[in-house]
Amino acid sequence: MTLNNAKKGCKYSITDITADEKIMKRLEALGFIRGTSITVLNKKKYGAVIIKVRGTRMALGKAITQGIAVTEASYEG
């Protein structure tokens, strides 16, 4: 599934990212790569989210969250 369908309060692990090059590079620099874990702190219905990644809070828009494939990573607690 993709991040825009994620549930508030859950923890996920990134499996794949698709975005145009500019956004991709920025996400990579922020440490969004395969295997990075993400906690969803807040979410709007249409797909914008506030997440925590590598100790930083970020707000992401729908076009970005649609391109981030994730799996639930509850075992990491």
């Binding site: 975005a19 956004i23 920025r26 996400l27 914008a48 506030i50 930083t56 809070r57 970020m58 707000a59 992401l60 828009g61 729908k62 076009a63 970005i64």
Partner: peptide, 11 residues
């Protein structure tokens, strides 16, 4: 540009 919001939220 599509909705490419990407911003850090400081403490």
């Amino acid at each position: 540009g599509g909705n490419t919001l990407l911003i850090e939220l400081p403490e």
